[in-house]
Amino acid sequence: MKSIGLIPAIRSEFLKLRTLRSSWLGFSITAGLTIGFGALISYVSKTHYETMSFAEKATFDPIQISLVGTLFAQFAVGVIGAMLITSEFVSGSIRTTLAAVPSRMTVLVAKAAVLKVSVLVVGVVSCFTAFFLGQTIMNGVGIPTASLSNGNTLRAVALAGLYLMLLALLGFGLGLIIRQTAGTISAFVSLLLVLPLIAYLLPSSWRNEILRYLPSSLGRAMMSSPGTIYEFPLFSPWAATGILVGYVILAIGIGAYLFERRDV
């Protein structure tokens, strides 16, 4: 497979990403949801902490509270990842792209690299901002807050940013397979929202085993604090990260296989 090289392809894809208003909108929404919802829920927690039950106070997790915005932002990054590739299929511009860079693997790797780096930067910055803002809001009045000097806290916040990046790549992989914006976003939302709903209908022995493998549960595990009790057992943060990486590799792997063989 000969090609004109990966570096020019990456530079080209980076220019394509940053010259679209929709990219900036997508990243702004990601940051806005992560930081905004984190601040909002932190504030609500602060004002209602006094009235919480003993059990609620016992499981109160200031890290998770401040990172709650990632639950919303995960859809924004999924859409960013999906549209990075589906917009090319939908408009037909994939032909223009491949007439300039015929190696499909080069195009795929360049796109994935640009997506990975940009979402990771936006995700990590947003998550740390949300964390600091949340802790600042909740500070005082006897509410437990977290500090980054604790290794587990640092890990939870950093993995929250990584979680967003992995979900963007998952959306990208689905987009490669489905090649259609609406279909890809439906599939992505189903994975995150509908699968858990179905899992809850299953007998509890199955349910707990299945639930912890779902992407959204893996995300919670990545951001979890030791000692917090959840409705079902989660994987350890690093095991959860590994499994999610596996899903991403699977989705992009299938997508790459199809992309290499299909006519465009």
Binding site: I4, G5, P8, A9, R11, S12, E13, L15, K16, T19, L20, R21, S22, S87, E88, S91, G92, S93, R95, T96, T97, A99, A100, V101
Partner: peptide, 25 residues
């Protein structure tokens, strides 16, 4: 030139051409 409309509608003409130029140095 295969299909004149096969480009991202949101990108300017100049940036569309720049992205192509860069990809081939």
């Amino acid at each position: 030139l295969l299909d004149a409309k096969a480009l991202h509608p949101g990108r300017s003409a100049r940036n569309h051409l720049r992205s192509l130029a860069i990809s081939n140095r």
